[in-house]
Design a protein around this nucleic acid. Structure first.
Length: 404
RNA sequence: GGGUAGGUAGCGAAGCGGUCAAACGCAGGUGACUGUAAAUCACCCGGCUCUAUGCCUUCAGAGGUUCGAAUCCUCUCCUGCCCA
């Protein structure tokens, strides 16, 4: 958190200097080369700022969004943002944030994921100031000789020294030759778009540096690099689509709000800094005034939800949350399912409505008192419901279905 | 291409002829306690049924041996390591 002395220094700067300061620090883990980038930002030169995201999942989560927000800050400062959709690299698969080999994806699944990608990105970026590029455009054409020239700039040794590669290597896991090529592709992206700055997570370090190495080969000045903090997901592990611990920017307001509320307390301050756009001074002040983690988290949940859905919906989400979880009342909106009228075994209802994936699971849930019918816990799983019409079934704390 | 060690549930990893739907850990679920936090505790975690020392489908794949196979044999595919 910002020290008092630093705080005084910052508020005394004029607005643009303040913005530059924030660009270089907030949510930022490391800058290469910081001095150079700082000078460029102050010089008034319009920079080309690159960020590439591979559409390996249909959702962009708020961890990925950290870099997108950073891009937005650059846009606000008048720089040219280049958003690279990794439709080619996505197929090949980057392993830098993984501890196992990532399988190659089909063109089809990438295309599928792409459908809502830009829409998501534009929740954050200013559409009119964003240059979009698909990296298949240039990577597809690259010949072997060209690839060899670039590959010559790297040694196997440095590649193998990367932490998670080294780890897999010593554990006797497979490391494919293809994976060696990934940094080269990402590096060449920088050449193709003539990047002055590239953003990425700290786990992207090697790939980001590859751009710096390759650009001079094509007579370009090496880009500067801004490495963003990686945020933890709902379970405390790194946020990643493959873990299923993400908060996605397309999540419904109440889900988004609720997911934030389920975060561990230790992450609150970091989340405020990295995932919200609340002014730093305000954050510091707020956290000081409200010490109870629950209060802090509710504000955090509100801020994050507001960021993606607007104030009104965020307020609604908050009210709904209080009603459902603090006051333990039925939520206002309960998803409805139609069933043919008649009598049903409880277990069948659970299965039919998708509240359980098998009858065994349904029985287990009932046995463990995880099921409620109209707020009441049924005695046994053999219960037969004579009239399913209009009943509300609850499984666990969160799942509700109303039967019509 | 040769040698060698392996391929077990979402992941990691035991089991190495019957007592195996398969130990254990992680992830996940439900409950208790709570702040939809953490920690802790309990139970669960392939499917089906008349809930039973019941049935069905699973231990890379295909065949085979056996009363009986995740466990033995043959071939195929995949991976690590060593050699070339």
């Amino acid at each position: 958190m910002t020290e008092r002395g630093e705080y005084d220094r910052i508020i005394n700067m004029d607005n643009e200097n303040l913005q530059i300061e924030e660009v270089l620090t907030r949510g930022v883990n490391e800058v290469i080369d910081k001095k150079d980038l700082e000078e460029k930002l102050h010089s008034g030169v319009k920079l080309r700022v690159k960020l590439g995201i591979d559409p390996t999942s249909p959702n962009i989560h708020i961890g990925r969004a950290v870099a997108l927000w950073k891009l937005r800050q650059f846009q606000d400062l008048g720089h040219q943002v280049v958003f690279i959709v990794g439709d080619f690299t996505g197929q090949v698969g980057d392993t830098s944030d993984k501890n196992t080999e990532r399988p190659m994806l089909t063109e089809e699944s990438i295309k599928n994921n792409l459908k809502t990608y830009l829409k998501q990105a534009y929740k954050i970026l200013d559409r009119n100031k964003t240059e979009i590029a698909y990296n298949s455009k240039w990577l597809r054409k690259l010949g072997f000789m060209e690839i060899c020239k670039m590959a010559d700039l790297f040694s196997l040794n440095e590649f193998a020294s990367r932490e998670n590669i080294a780890k897999r290597y010593t554990e006797g896991k497979r490391v494919s030759l293809r994976e060696l090529l990934y940094p080269i592709m990402q590096g060449y992206d920088s050449v193709a778009v003539k990047a002055d700055v590239e953003l990425g997570g700290t786990d992207q370090r090697f790939n980001l540096l590859a751009g710096r190495t390759i650009q001079p080969l094509y007579g370009q000045t090496s880009q500067n690099i801004l490495m963003m903090d990686i945020i933890e997901g709902l379970d405390g592990r790194k946020m990643s689509s493959s873990w299923g611990n993400t908060i996605n920017i397309l999540d419904e307001p109440k889900d988004m709000y609720g997911k934030v509320m389920s975060l561990r307390d230790e992450l609150i301050a970091k989340y405020f800094m990295v995932t919200t756009r609340m002014p730093i001074t305000e954050i510091t002040e707020f956290l000081k005034q409200h010490e109870h983690p629950r209060t802090q988290k509710m504000r955090l949940a509100f801020e994050i939800t507001k960021l993606y859905h607007g104030e009104e919906k965020a307020m609604k989400a908050e009210k709904a949350f209080v009603k459902q979880f603090s006051e333990k009342k039925l939520p206002d909106e309960i998803p409805a399912r139609k069933l043919l009228p008649g009598s049903y075994k409880l277990v069948d209802v659970l299965l039919e409505t998708g509240l359980a994936t098998s009858k065994n699971e349904a029985r287990r849930l009932v046995e463990q008192n995880g099921v409620k019918i109209d707020q009441k816990t049924p005695e046994s799983d053999t219960l037969i419901i004579k009239d399913v019409n209009g009943i509300v079934i609850q499984v666990g704390k969160r799942k509700f279905i109303k039967i019509l």
